[in-house]
Deep mutational scan, measured.
Amino acid sequence: TTVHIGNVTYHFDNPEEAVKWAKEMAEKLGLRIEIHGDTIRVE
Rank of each mutant, 00 (worst) to 15 (best):
G30Y: 03
T2R: 10
R32W: 09
V42P: 02
F12E: 00
E17N: 07
D38H: 12
G37H: 05
T1I: 14
E16P: 03
I33G: 02
N14S: 12
Y10W: 08
W21L: 02
I40E: 02
I35K: 04
W21Q: 01
A22D: 00
F12R: 00
A22N: 00
V3R: 00
N7L: 09
W21N: 01
E24S: 11
K20S: 08
T2P: 03
N7F: 08
E24M: 14
E17H: 07
N7Q: 10
I35M: 09
P15V: 13
M25K: 03
G37V: 04
D13R: 06
D38T: 14
A22C: 04
K20A: 12
H4D: 04
R32L: 14
M25T: 05
H11L: 09
T39I: 14
V42T: 04
F12G: 00
E16M: 11
A18K: 00
R41W: 15
T9R: 12
I40K: 01
L31R: 06
I5V: 09
A26M: 04
F12A: 01
E17P: 03
A26L: 03
E27L: 09
E24L: 11
R32C: 12
D13T: 12
H36D: 14
L29E: 07
I5M: 08
T2A: 07
V8K: 15
E34Y: 14
R32V: 15
K28R: 12
L29N: 10
E16K: 09
Y10N: 03
L31W: 14
I33S: 02
H11D: 04
T9I: 15
V8N: 13
V3N: 00
L29D: 05
A22T: 02
T1P: 05
H11M: 08
K20Y: 05
L29C: 07
T2Y: 08
A22M: 03
K20R: 14
L29I: 06
F12M: 01
A18V: 02
I5Q: 01
V3D: 00
Y10G: 02
Y10F: 13
A18H: 00
H4Q: 13
I35Y: 09
Y10E: 03
H4T: 12
A18W: 02
I40F: 01
K23H: 09
L29R: 04
I33H: 02
H11C: 09
L31M: 15
I33Q: 01
I40G: 02
F12S: 00
T39Y: 10
D13M: 09
V3T: 01
H4G: 03
N14A: 05
D13E: 11
D13S: 11
K20D: 06
I40Y: 00
E17M: 09
I35N: 04
G37Q: 06
N7K: 13
E34W: 07
K20T: 08
I5Y: 06
K28A: 11
R32A: 14
A26W: 03
G37K: 06
E27M: 06
P15G: 08
V42D: 02
E34M: 12
T2Q: 09
E17S: 08
N7C: 15
N7M: 09
D13V: 09
L29W: 06
V42C: 04
R41Y: 15
A18G: 06
E43Y: 13
H36E: 12
E17C: 11
N14F: 06
I40Q: 01
V19K: 09
W21D: 00
L29T: 06
K20H: 07
A26E: 04
R32H: 15
E17T: 09
G30I: 03
G6W: 08
R32F: 13
I33Y: 10
W21H: 02
N14R: 05
T9C: 13
H36T: 12
K23Q: 13
E43Q: 14
F12C: 03
L29P: 03
E43V: 15
T9Q: 13
E43R: 14
H4P: 01
R41V: 14
N14I: 08
N14P: 01
E17G: 04
V8M: 14
I35E: 04
L29F: 10
I33D: 01
E17D: 13
A22R: 00
H4Y: 13
H4L: 13
A22V: 04
A26S: 06
H11G: 03
W21M: 03
E34I: 15
A26Q: 03
N14E: 07
I33E: 02
A22Y: 02
H36S: 12
E27S: 05
K28V: 07
L31F: 12
N14M: 05
I5G: 01
K28W: 08
Y10C: 08
I33M: 12
K23T: 14
